[in-house]
Nucleic acid binder design. Structure first.
Length: 1018
RNA sequence: GGGCGCGUAGCUCAGUGGGAGAGCACUACGUUCACACCGUAGGGGUCGCUGGUUCAAUCCCAGCCGCGCCCACCA
């Protein structure tokens, strides 16, 4: 006997363990493969509502397809999440008051992160299990592989191998290149980030208007005109007015630009003006040029061009060949004197010495940052610059202005555009086939609207900056050495060796230099070696090469997830990526085999199993994710998947909602409105949470999550539980030989028919990713059909004496309940599995076959008959309450009209009518007795002689209301039918339908009229 | 500036070219032997506004109002 309530806390653990132990999560059977790769959560992550929704939907699909007999692979894993993880570990080190990252060095730090990952990373996996996720955990993957040695990023793991191969191949195809470009620089993490990682936020700022004095004290007539060409202002000026929101960048100005059509500045074009910052004797003169970029109607119409610190200006500077200067160091402080600066200063000096300097001020102009601003934080420098210009009387005005300011999405600090050397992927080329694939429908977005978002971004895609100046991540497999000039290494140049491993790089270098290279430990080591070589002139020393210090953007490896997790590149030679000695005198040592322990964790690397998995499960069936990740991830998977696999990574992309709080706001830690899914699971059970999320996952709308709603679905689970308990009490259990198509009782034919309909509906909706409709269908069938009616209608049978009827009803009930459990299982796996076993169904529900809709089980006649009885009961109940008939009172029913059919119906449903409508006796009659309440039902009238209770006026009012309703409907229909155009142009069936409806209302009205007439006699 | 989406019952939301729906909340009644995490019944909406297409519009189209999100270099 079942307990009164489902103890989900106990059952969830036990059942999950059973499932996992039984191997139910592994791909099985010979069915068509069904594949989902999990959006790998950050290894630092813990389960939030977004994950809960995302994984609930994936699990619903996986369980559904598994029951349908497909060979389901739900591929799990986590993402190494470069910045996020590095941040977490650094914070932890700080809390523990351990030495900083920079103090312990790269190798030690990376080892620390690996340690962290093995100790505390990946807790989210256990949280996913609590949700009931049926991932094949034996295949768990990590975007950085499983090797934890930290030895210079050697690829002894297939996941790493995949990344290295992709990089090398793309480089060899010219789709990855190194370039000096303006990038988004995050001064907090001291790394470049991609455009996507920048958030533009409107902030309060200022718009400063300054005078840039003309060179040599020159003057001109400044004339301003209104729209009609009337002169509104004329004055003699010895300056050009420019406006800026970032005065500290003035020191890096290369020009002032005006629009070629701007009459005001025509006399100035080609002239020089002075940047009014710093000691007067060192001020730089810059040219006034024309470009289409300045908008004459905005500001003064003249724009300072700072190519090294502004994306617009960068374009202008490139077009006009204006020099670009980097003013700041990596922390975005104004450049300190010394090393970073020396390079440009040296170049300038050389130009002057060679007589090629553009003008005598050139060397001075290279000393961009005057002493008083050196080393200052950029915002402090801004204040000083403004104050100094103001003191000099060159500030015209300052406006308060809302400006869109770029922030690093992780760091939260203002991004500084910075001119640096970075690696880029040619996204434009890679995007082309990815766009076509969606255009052709090889990959479909659901809802399809999201394709527009995808297209919009992909068609305007910019080069993808893939290098990051971090330590945690896939180290860029590029090595640098000197170029050979006339057979001798020229250390002022750079030769790049891109290779899948240090070993290969060394081979390539050896081939190029004709001797074993020395693998420098880092750039410091490299410099030392080259100096040694240069100074001693000992050409016999090995030529040094060193590996790029940078790592790859996390999304670069995430983009390979749909195939890297399946064992790609399986055809590559076996792992041969042992350590390479860093001893200068030994050169390259023999590669070592990776430790066997590490191999054991990557069973699919190489080998036949991996290959066949890839064949079977690529392309994946569907990707389930939220829209905020379309650019970051979906687009990259499309590009890389198509390029390397020759086919799209997945056939469908289901984009689900964002989970918001009750008020519709994004959940965030800072707002304190985060609802923890685990708390809800503890409180209401995983089933309730899952059902809530699925039931609200309507396409194209966000989900507002309220605890109340979760509670409601917990109640639903309890309702089902108690229905099952009732079934158990009445010996309702699956019967081996029962043929549902051969049921004889109307009640049973009906519930079988309804169960079959429900199966068809749930299947149809799930196939179309309409999770909310699927959930709604099973909810309604369970509660409003099975519990509210079937069980109530079955009670008289169970309490009766007809053993044959009892037997059939038990079997039919078990059939219907079985359907419920199966159809509900994808949504509420735990309670359904528990009941399945408790009630004696066969095997484990998780691997039970999904109910196929079956035409043999349809029975429209039974459905109609039951509906007749249900409607009659409902009507009687309604009238009883309205007339205040005491609940306990049993009253007789007289049925007038309706013919033999009604008589038969009354006989069939005699028991249930009596019980559920609380009737004492049922009979037929020719006319309603006096003092009876009359209910129009079907072709007849149900009369309840309740003179003792009836309030005559109330009954009259009730009937009058019904009458008015019917009349109104008839009037509406008549109006339509009287419209010639309607009769002519509307489809015949619509016209016919209206006529039928009218007949129905007409009959009802007649009976109501008669009933009212009878009342008047009283 | 461009793009996407939303505005239906008190709340949260489904929905459809031809008879306005659910859950919750609310009201009344009910401890009938599965369930008070329940049952029975009930109240409640000019489907944002204005036009247009159509025999017919909550649904399609246009405009407007209000709200949200994404993208974008106006210094």
């Amino acid at each position: 006997m079942l307990e009164k309530n489902f103890d989900f806390a106990e059952a969830e653990k036990r059942i999950y363990k059973d499932w996992e132990a039984s191997g139910a999560f592994k791909p099985a059977g010979e069915g068509e493969p069904f594949t989902i790769v999990i959006p790998p959560p950050n290894v630092t992550g813990s389960l939030h509502m977004g994950h809960a929704l995302n994984n609930t939907l994936q699990d619903v699909l996986c369980r559904f397809e598994r029951m349908r007999g497909r060979r389901v692979l739900w591929q799990p894993g986590t993402d190494h999440a470069g910045i996020a993880t590095q941040m977490v570990v650094e914070r932890q080190m700080m809390e523990r008051q351990e030495p900083k990252r920079t103090e312990i060095g790269r190798e030690a730090f990376v080892r620390k992160v690996w340690d962290w990952r093995h100790e505390s990373g990946g807790q989210i996996i256990n949280q996913l299990k609590r949700l009931g996720a049926t991932c094949d955990w034996s295949r768990e993957r990590f975007t950085m592989g499983e090797h934890g040695g930290g030895e210079n990023g050697e690829a002894d793991d297939q996941m790493v191998k995949a990344v290295m191969k992709v990089f090398v191949d793309l480089y060899n195809e010219g789709l990855i290149y190194r370039d000096k470009r303006l990038v988004n620089w995050d001064p907090k993490f001291e790394t470049a980030i991609s455009d996507l990682e920048v958030e533009n936020i409107e902030t309060d700022g200022h718009f400063w208007h300054f005078k840039y004095p003309l060179a040599g004290g020159e003057t001109y007539e400044y004339v301003e005109k209104d729209e009609d060409g009337n002169v509104t202002l004329t004055e003699t000026r010895d300056y050009i007015s420019i406006a800026t929101t970032r005065p500290e960048t003035m020191l890096g100005d290369g020009a002032v630009a005006v629009h070629p059509s701007d009459e005001r500045y025509k006399p100035l074009i080609g002239k020089l003006c002075e940047i009014p910052v710093g000691p007067k004797e060192h001020r730089r003169l810059i040219p006034i040029i024309t470009d289409d970029y300045p908008d004459p109607d905005f500001g003064s119409g003249a724009v300072k061009i700072t190519g090294g610190h502004d994306f617009n200006d960068y374009q202008v500077a490139k077009r006009a060949n204006i020099p670009m200067y980097r003013l700041m160091d990596w922390q975005a402080a104004m450049r300190a004197d010394g090393a970073p600066y020396a390079e440009e200063a040296a170049k300038a000096k050389a130009l002057v010495e060679a007589g090629d300097a553009p003008d005598a001020n050139y060397v001075d102009s290279i000393n961009l940052v005057p002493d008083e601003y050196r080393g200052l934080d950029r915002f402090e420098a801004r204040k000083r610059v403004v104050a100094d210009i103001d003191a000099e009387g060159l500030m015209i005005t300052v406006e308060d202005k809302k400006i869109m300011q770029p922030f690093g999405d992780r760091s939260g600090v203002v991004i500084e555009p910075m001119l640096t050397d970075q690696w880029f992927a040619d996204a434009e080329t890679l995007a082309k086939p990815a766009i076509e694939a969606v255009e052709k429908g090889d990959t479909k977005f659901v809802p399809e609207n999201w394709a527009k978002t995808y297209f919009q971004w992909m068609r305007n895609i910019q080069p993808w900056c893939i290098s990051r100046q971090l330590w945690w991540g896939h180290r860029i497999p590029a090595w640098y050495g000197p170029e050979l000039v006339d057979g001798a290494p020229d250390y002022s140049t750079e030769k790049i060796f891109v290779a899948q491993s240090q070993f290969e790089a060394a081979e390539k270098a050896k081939e190029y230099y004709g001797c074993e290279p020395y693998l420098a430990a880092d750039t410091g080591d490299y410099l030392q070696q080259t100096l040694l070589r240069n100074e001693t002139g000992r050409t016999g020393n090995p030529i040094a090469i060193y590996q790029d210090e940078d790592v790859l953007d996390t999304w670069f490896s995430s983009g390979l997830w749909p195939f890297s997790t399946l064992g790609w590149p399986d055809a590559s030679p076996p792992p041969f990526m042992g350590e390479v000695s860093a001893e200068p005198t030994e050169g390259v040592s023999a590669p070592k085999e990776p430790p066997s322990a590490l191999r054991a964790t990557s069973p699919a690397s190489g080998g036949r199993e991996g290959a066949s998995l890839l064949d079977q499960h690529y392309p994946n069936s569907v990707l389930v994710t939220a829209h905020d990740i379309i650019f970051f991830w979906v687009a990259r998977m499309m590009m890389q998947g198509i390029h390397f696999m020759g086919d799209v990574p997945f056939k469908d992309v289901y984009i689900h909602a964002l989970v918001l709080d009750e008020k519709g706001q994004k959940m965030s830690k800072s707002k304190g409105n985060v609802i923890d899914p685990l708390v809800l699971i503890d409180k209401f059970g995983a089933d309730a949470l899952r059902f809530t999320l699925a039931a609200q996952a309507a396409q194209g709308r966000n989900i507002r999550l309220s605890e109340q709603r979760v509670e409601g679905y917990r109640n639903f689970a309890t309702k089902l539980w108690n229905a099952a308990r009732f079934a158990q009490m009445n010996d309702v259990k699956p019967e081996a030989g029962f043929d549902p198509a051969a049921a004889s009782l109307t009640l049973n034919q009906w519930i079988i028919h309804e169960a079959n309909e429900c199966a068809a509906a749930v299947t149809r909706e799930l196939e179309a990713y309409r999770f909310n409709d699927a959930a709604g269908a099973i909810y309604r069938f369970t509660w409003n059909v099975f519990c509210d009616w079937f069980l109530e209608l079955a009670k008289p049978v169970f309490q009766g004496v007809d053993e044959a009827a009892k037997k059939e009803t038990r079997a039919a009930g078990a059939f219907a309940l079985g359907h419920i459990l199966k159809l509900l299982h994808p949504f509420m796996p735990f309670v359904s599995e528990e009941l399945w076993r408790e009630l004696g169904y066969e095997g484990a529900l998780i691997t039970t076959a999904w109910p196929q809709a079956n035409a043999k089980l349809e029975n429209a006649a039974a459905a109609k008959d039951m509906q007749w009885a249900i409607d009659l009961i409902t009507s009687i109940r309604s009238v009883r309450q309205e007339m205040n008939v005491p609940v306990a009172a049993k009253i007789p029913l007289l049925f007038i009209g309706g013919g033999d059919a009604a008589t038969a119906q009354l006989k069939t449903h005699d028991d249930v009518l009596k019980r559920l409508a609380r009737l004492s006796d049922i009979s037929t009659a020719d006319a309603a007795p006096k003092g009876a309440v009359q209910i129009v039902h079907g072709d007849g009238v149900a009369a309840l002689p309740v003179a003792d209770f009836i309030d005559l006026d109330a009954e009259k009012a009730r009937l009058a209301k019904e009458q008015a309703k019917a009349e109104k409907e008839i009037a509406t229909i008549d109006k339509k039918l009287a419209n010639k155009k309607f009769v002519e142009r509307a489809p015949a069936e619509v016209v016919e339908e209206q006529k039928t409806r009218r007949t129905g209302y007409e009959a009802e009205l007649e009976k109501l009229n008669a009933a009212l007439a009878r009342l008047k006699d009283l």
